[in-house]
């Protein structure tokens, strides 16, 4: 045994001498009972696929059925054939991605030259964004290019993103961007 580890006999013997009180006989039952009840016992269970890398690991999300309805636990899904319950450090921290006080929870707006954000409503934000798109697009729409070929596009607006969206969202987004006439359409796969 390591020497420093063995020192405890002397040290503790010396410091603790004379205050010996036995605590045997303490009722352990409540402690044990509590330890054996899972925090996820009454939670709603849904499956998800991890949002980080491209392995596509399955996870189980435990959401409280009471109170605020927030996430109690996220852990690997043992029935997922790729990860069989395993996750990496990031996957194991999925709960903290979700239940995170740093998250954005309201639309925000920063006016030209302003030094602060200001909270705005969804309706206002969507309306204003659509108006910006229309103004920019209409002012800079190219029906024909320099060679006189029909192009029906605008190069005054660009978009990047996103591999963080679901397939269905990606599909909708590219459809909308193309209908808007954008050709500057890129995302994570390019970098």
């Amino acid at each position: 045994m390591d020497v420093s580890r063995r020192k405890f006999i002397q040290i503790s013997g010396a410091t603790a001498a004379g205050v010996a009180v036995s605590h045997l006989g303490f009722d352990l039952r409540p402690v044990k009972a509590h330890a054996q009840m899972l925090k996820t016992q009454y939670a709603k269970e849904t499956t998800t696929i991890c949002c980080y890398c491209g392995v596509g690991c399955g996870a189980i999300v435990h959401t409280s059925r009471r109170g605020d309805g927030r996430v109690i636990n996220i852990e690997g899904d043992p029935e997922h054939v790729i990860n069989r319950g395993a996750l990496c450090s990031k996957g194991s921290a999925l709960k903290q991605l979700t239940e995170n006080t740093n998250r954005l929870t309201e639309p925000m707006y920063r006016a030209p030259g302003a030094s602060e954000w200001r909270q705005v409503s969804w309706d206002w934000a969507i309306d204003q964004i659509a108006r910006r798109v229309k103004e920019t697009r209409d002012a800079a729409f190219e029906v024909k290019n320099d060679k006189g070929q029909t192009v029906n596009r605008t190069t005054a607006i660009a978009s990047v993103g996103s591999a963080a969206m679901d397939n269905e969202e990606c599909w909708l987004y590219q459809a909308l961007l193309r209908a808007m006439g954008l050709v500057y359409v890129e995302h994570q796969a390019r970098i």
Partner: peptide, 17 residues
């Protein structure tokens, strides 16, 4: 080894010029 959970899908759905 693709680096994002849906970068395969977002490529398939063509968020690219």
């Amino acid at each position: 080894l693709r680096g994002e959970s849906n970068v395969q899908g977002s490529t398939d759905q063509a968020l690219l010029f």
